[in-house]
Design a protein around this nucleic acid. Structure first.
Lengths: 228, 228
DNA sequence: CCGTGTATAATTGTATACAATTATACACTT
DNA sequence: AAGTGTATAATTGTATACAATTATACACGG
């Protein structure tokens, strides 16, 4: 989905600006001038404009006609809200996935869990990028398995939104282990066609992430985090 | 929010194309050529491109790099899914609104209900546009009152998505009366700070809409409906 | 006759040019 | 000296021009 994002210039500009908003380089209420950003990235105004228009739809940028584009940003309350909404929707997703998942998708999920366990056993310090990547993959397969374009779309959006917060969250080894254990439980419930349990577990799984975030304080949201 | 949509050319092109997708003029898998649409609307390719990029993000259009933009459309299953998701989220919204609503917003809601009752009593045949408009207003105030930018954003999106289906749905006078009655109940629960009840009622309110849609069959989704 | 390759046309991707709007600076009036 | 009006600059909005990619047509070889 949205594969053009990688190939086209506009797509890459879009991703770059979003990244700069999420990692705090562009701060709330900053004015995003088309020329400035274009020169920064070595492109003309056109792809920058397209990117800004898309970001407006995502809610990260607010455009005032004939005036300019301003960073809306994402507050820690927004992150909280997203997790609460996600916990409901991931539950629904697990329910629908239980009803529609294919054997191939079940295999994929198995594979991901195996890989996750491999990566976490491998090193003392957990490889954050790898684990985060696999966690994302696990959920996105569930999105597909739900067989609901709409639900998948919303959840994917949210997922991208909080990816920064998540990257800092899942990094603790303890949490990573628990997360994988939860994934395994969800997968078992799905395999055994226990829709109610799958829903409940997926719901709680996201709630756990919230707990974890709260424990850390996640002040890093919106600040430099050395990624990239 | 998104006020530029009305002023800028790109914004109007965006709305026009979306309308044409939702009302079925542009059908699933249709290729949307920038030049063609531009000539149709009497504008250049630039605003059309911007509009198509935005529509891709909304999921109504799918863009293949260097090839073209294709209508994704919205199936009746999509509409079903949206209502189910909405019923959960409207519940959450009512809960949060109960906790955060202001006196002014309560007054606005009162006003809307009064207006709705006025319009429905006025004529034998219910004025669909008016009632739909007021229904939309009622919900959007609740979105604001929830004090959650994120939740409001998602629900607004969904609302727009299904506005066509809704327009045909709420049109029956019986349903319109019930809908207003449900709004009144929700409002009372909010005013009495009964969060659980508000959530439950808002949830059921959307469920009712689903029931109503199913009863009608809503085959009109995606077909010409003479609006505009 | 079918398939392949090349030339041509059509379409998208990006950059630039021009128009319209908004911000800024500074002189002028009071 | 403060406020206002106008000229100028800066920025956004739209259109057009050019480049790159993809689709189409047709000739050629099998």
């Amino acid at each position: 989905m949205e594969e053009y994002q990688d190939h086209s210039l506009s797509g890459r500009v879009f991703q770059k600006i979003r990244e700069n908003i999420l990692n705090g380089k562009y701060k709330e209420h900053d004015e995003l001038r088309e020329n400035t950003i274009g020169k920064e990235l070595g492109v003309s105004r056109t792809p920058v404009r397209e990117a800004l228009r898309q970001l407006e739809l995502e809610g990260l940028v607010s455009i005032v006609p004939n005036k300019g584009a301003y960073v809306t940003g994402i507050s820690s309350k927004d992150v909280d809200d997203i997790y609460i909404i996600r916990s409901m929707l991931e539950g629904l997703c697990a329910r629908w996935a239980t009803e529609n998942i294919t054997a191939a998708q079940l295999d994929e999920l198995d594979e991901i869990i195996l890989l996750s366990e491999f990566h976490i056993k491998k090193e003392g310090g957990v490889s954050a990028d790898q684990v985060t990547e696999l966690d994302g993959k696990f959920h996105s397969i569930l999105y597909e398995a739900s067989n609901s374009k709409i639900l998948g779309h919303v959840l994917t959006d949210f997922h991208k939104y909080v990816q920064m917060a998540r990257k800092t969250s899942v990094v603790s080894e303890e949490r990573a282990r628990k997360s994988i254990r939860e994934h395994k439980q969800i997968l078992r419930a799905i395999r055994e066609k226990d829709t109610d349990l799958a829903e409940q577990l997926a719901n709680e799984h996201i709630m756990q992430v919230i707990q974890n975030l709260k424990k850390q304080g996640y002040e890093q949201t919106g600040g430099e985090n050395g990624k990239d």
